[in-house]
Design a protein around this nucleic acid. Structure first.
Lengths: 336, 336
DNA sequence: CTGTTAGCGCCTTCAA
DNA sequence: TTGAAGGCGCTAACAG
């Protein structure tokens, strides 16, 4: 591995000159032939600046962290991809981490946030106790941005959760459903409340008395969705349609319906959130409200970089483009 | 952020002493009271060594990379988790990266492998052109370990692919199937061939002439699995059972069967590989051969660290514990 | 226009 | 048993 000094020797200049040329220092003028010599030497030696030395000098790691629950949940995939791209466009690298893992063994996490391994953290909360620990520790040590949720006092990037839930409920209403259940997210997140509010407002506008009849937590995993649906069913009466506020949970809910001997969508319609890969491939394929997950990942990282640069940033960034949009498939149909 | 000098001043010693105490230098003896003072000061100031300075000094990044195709594919989740844990146990951090992203824009990748952002790379190939680029570039620059595949001349950690495929085929044979199709992985990977060999050997031992009758590529995605199944069906005759060498593709294959008006498992049995989260939740739930994915992730990282430390490492590490195991669910049944 | 110098925070001889 | 000094590779202020 060649260093800046090797290049300097090769180009017969001091290493400081190399540094300034390669970093395109605007306050610096140099004879074209010298610049030429330096660039040529750098190319020939395949010089690449040492990351650690740079980080030490700048007091910047050149890496940012992304902490999620369950890296494997396909819903998060789009967020991760968006973040990945945005980070790359800043010439930095992404470090992916599991929140629950961090909570179980905080050593790594603590090192990551306190020893300058990363310059900032994007954090996707799920509403459990691990969140609280991570959020508290992270914000104390680093610029931190919440993604897919908002909490007063913290920088956040959110979707139009209320609108999205409203679109889902309206779709069911439009199909002719009046008995509409909902599987909310679990955990104490704002998006849970926002989505619930959107759902309720659609019912209200349609003149449907909800009376909080069929409301359960469905969470964001296959298993929690399945259990939520089973709880809904254990009430004696069943709705003809259910809005599930997460696509992974919706697949679990469909599984539960099948176990109960119900056919989807003939006996019960199910709509999910997020257009993750599995939505179109399960049977029946899942009608969803598609959200701008990837764009949200991008925005979160951009917000974080602005924070790191010390810029003034509004507390809550809302991702408005693209807006939530219905993606109709097989799992919803008129009631019979 | 306090530095080693702050601690030294606080404990009224030189910073060299602090360094040696904190790093437990065995060739170093110190008066208990001095050690006490230092440890106490370090704790009080919440001293954490600066990662960049350490990296610079040791010429080690303290991070290792994991390059996969499609971070969101649930099959990889277990591998990632295993790797995560192993990396943490070494006091390092994991950098997750997307191979295809790297191929599209090699800038970030090149920086990552050449500028000491990571100390080594674990690489999960899928058999496309992106692999070749990444593998070539990575091995030239860094200690690199292949995971879930093997290539002569490169360090690899693999599963018992042949055995696993054999178990899958034997399960179908035992149920009474004789007309057995297979959806292979695509791409030019060794595990594709190994699994095919295991499959064939089961048929042979059962006295079934394969004649390469129902053999197609199913890949490792929902869509490729679906298409593979459609191609199988387009041949005029249909097998009564299909072994799909990847669980995600198997879900796609089930979807295709449904589109063809076939019921699973009544008309056609389907068995998949890897016990990923969705396997138990799709309808019908998917019978799979469960592989030691998480353990493979662990082993890959351990192998990489041995390589980084300059130890002698056998070229191919086989993960033998736990061995592949059948996990029977609803998608396989006797032929009718 | 270019070179010299002084650190960033840490570890590791070498001396005392 | 402890301290002083040098240097990892890089950048930025200051000289020339």
């Amino acid at each position: 591995m060649s260093t800046i000094k090797d290049v300097a020797r090769e180009a017969r200049v001091s290493h400081a000159v190399v540094s300034r040329i390669l970093n395109k220092d605007p306050t610096f003028t140099v004879r074209p032939e010298t610049r030429e010599r330096v660039l040529e030497a750098a190319a020939r030696l395949r010089y690449i600046p040492n990351h650690a030395a740079r980080a030490l000098r700048h007091n910047r790691a050149g890496a940012i962290g992304l902490a999620v629950h369950e890296i494997g949940n396909p819903v998060y995939n789009a967020i991760i991809e968006g973040a990945q791209k945005a980070v790359a466009s800043h010439g930095a690298v992404l470090m992916l981490a599991d929140v629950d893992e961090f909570h179980r063994d905080p050593t790594t996490f603590n090192r990551m946030i306190t020893s300058k391994v990363i310059d900032g953290l994007v954090f996707l909360p799920a509403g459990n106790e691990a969140d609280d620990f991570v959020l508290r520790a992270a914000t104390a040590a680093l610029p931190t941005v919440l993604v897919n949720d908002r909490t007063p006092g913290f920088h956040s990037v959110t979707l139009e959760d209320s609108d999205a839930a409203k679109i889902a409920a309206e779709h069911l209403i439009q199909l002719g459903h009046r008995d509409i259940g909902v599987l909310l997210l679990d955990g104490e997140t704002q998006r849970r409340l926002d989505r619930f509010a959107g759902h309720e407002s659609a019912l209200q506008e349609a003149g449907i008395e909800s009376g909080h009849a069929w409301v359960e937590n469905g969470g964001h995993t296959l298993d929690s969705g399945r259990k939520g649906m089973l709880r809904l069913a254990s009430r004696g009466s069943l709705p003809t349609a259910v809005s599930v506020h997460n696509a992974t949970a919706a697949v679990g809910a469909m599984r539960a319906a099948m176990e109960l001997g119900l056919h989807v969508p003939e006996d019960i319609s199910i709509i999910g959130f997020h257009d993750m890969s599995f939505a179109g491939f399960v049977t029946p394929s899942l009608t969803v409200v598609k959200l701008a997950l990837e764009e949200m990942g991008v925005q979160a990282v951009e917000t974080l970089f602005r924070l790191i640069a010390g810029e003034d940033v509004e507390e809550t960034v809302r991702v408005l483009d693209p807006m939530p949009k219905l993606e109709m498939r097989e799992s919803t149909a008129p009631p019979r």
